[in-house]
Nucleic acid binder design. Sequence first.
DNA 1: GTGAAAGCGCTAACAG
DNA 2: CTGTTAGCGCTTTCAC
Lengths: 342, 342
Amino acid sequence: MQRKRTITSRDVAERAGVSQSAVSRCFSPKASISEKTKNKVLKAAKELGYRPNSIARSLITRSSRTIALVLSHLDNMFYPLVIEKASLRFQAEDYHLLLFVVPEAGDFSGVMERILQSQVDGILMMSASLTSSLARECVDSGIPVVLVNRKVDFDGISQVYSDNYHGGFWVGSYLAMAGHDRVAYLAGLESSSTSRHRYQGLVDGLASLGKQCHAIAHGDYDFEQARAATRQLFTAPPYPDAVFAASDHMAIAVMETLRDDFNLRIPEDVSVIGFDDTPVAAWPSYRLTTVRQPVDQMVEEATTLLLRQIRQGDFRAESRILPVTPILRHSVRSPVREATLD
Amino acid sequence: MQRKRTITSRDVAERAGVSQSAVSRCFSPKASISEKTKNKVLKAAKELGYRPNSIARSLITRSSRTIALVLSHLDNMFYPLVIEKASLRFQAEDYHLLLFVVPEAGDFSGVMERILQSQVDGILMMSASLTSSLARECVDSGIPVVLVNRKVDFDGISQVYSDNYHGGFWVGSYLAMAGHDRVAYLAGLESSSTSRHRYQGLVDGLASLGKQCHAIAHGDYDFEQARAATRQLFTAPPYPDAVFAASDHMAIAVMETLRDDFNLRIPEDVSVIGFDDTPVAAWPSYRLTTVRQPVDQMVEEATTLLLRQIRQGDFRAESRILPVTPILRHSVRSPVREATLD
DNA sequence: GTGAAAGCGCTAACAG
DNA sequence: CTGTTAGCGCTTTCAC
């Protein structure tokens, strides 16, 4: 099988007996062209199997109609969900999605360079390892970027994240009200603002009822590490009587470990709360009480912000804090059971 | 904040006092250029913050260095795993990954057109809904494509998939040997070759020990549909005494449903086997016996095949059937427990 | 080794 | 509405 010569608009023009620009106009939505010529052109195009070369188009329009989606932790179902939603959303706007999966450990410098060179029109940044300085680099190089589920103390940059603090606060007060005295926090990555804010909220929520956080362990958003951290937490007294994990993914790891390694019941022996409300949290085996992040809304807002920056060259940074929703299921022992929102 | 003018190789050339082509050569690995000029150019480039425009490069080299990854069912952890692996692999080869998430239901015609227009150098196709004719369209339009985890009866196209038939066969014989008489199959999508082959294997494996398949239900690779199908399967006697689900994702749904809706124990009351060996199968709550697909190897082979087609214009179609591995855990009742491979 | 020149395939003024 | 013209930023002969 041999490589076919690529068909250009010039070929179509020739065949249709019109100018090359006429052909071009047929494939630009807004250009004005008569029905008659258009039909001739379309006919010739179909016969030749012509398809506009989007690279040439990009070169001249200075727009690749491509967005970079940068993330990690694909094993946490939260992200596949985001990908799915983002894909749909951008597809609807006729943008392509370029995916960058960055290993959370260390080496993202190369990735950064790759992203910058990829000629994307914008970046949706969801990786925790891309810190403030990297975000700034994006802004400096003039490419629109919005941070999703990430916050950075530098206000030249748009960000959308959910109200992690109040999510954590709710957890703290809820657990305190349930009578827990030894609440442990299973943190995500050190570098992650979300994990820190959830912790801060937890501490304050606990404090609002005169309690304090009993212990903190690090799961780094990783399943196995969360299991290890749990074992450590429960290896010597005084044992926690509740664990708040910074993600459902880790919360599940906690539950599995508590049940399997320690033969502990949830919520009778230990209460567990997660964060995200991924589908797995609702599975009968877990019925995990958690804090829902509005994934759809996050993607929606981020997309809107990003697209506005791209289309209108509107570079004002804007932050959106989205409300979270407590989802009451059955992983917390309850003196009082409130209505579930699920 | 205002939009900066883009820096071109011409700007760099001017500043470095060399020709534009000299600059170009500095950024092509194989081009010959003296150390001295190169240093001058690189210095000027850095000062100006120059980055080669990969779109212009693509236009002239006729290569976007981009691969399309087409898939669906991101809620099935198998796919995020594939994405992660593929991303790493292509990154290493200096290719970008364009992601197309196609809704498994119906409407993929638009997607097909979008892919074809995206100027990718190649396609990794993992969506079940893209059938033979669509695959053919890729081949016709001359763009390298390899089907992954998909098989199509048209041998002009490269495909890599695992040995679904023998996986199913193993399940059939294993279940028969465990003494099961009423094995139900929970199928994936009707259009999916993988599901059909697994079924065929199951039937033959059962038959090899003089048994036959007791019932078949359709879960379409979807969690909720798998739950519904399970309820239906167990709603009236004779009840299955084992269920083989075409994916772990569905197998988990089966287990959850059996336990939660029917108060059945696994494996004491019903045996369950899955396919894929996603991480969740190993979680203590499930300890799902399953058939492992070699994800890494699949991606590896597919990538190699695709890259060869791209780089060498080698269009010979080639198929690779990868071996699967039975993973014995505890979701099947066992007169004999063999050594686990996990 | 280096520069000049010729496009890659397309869009966007600009006249007509 | 349509054709002509001029590039987008780069790679790649081709002389020198």
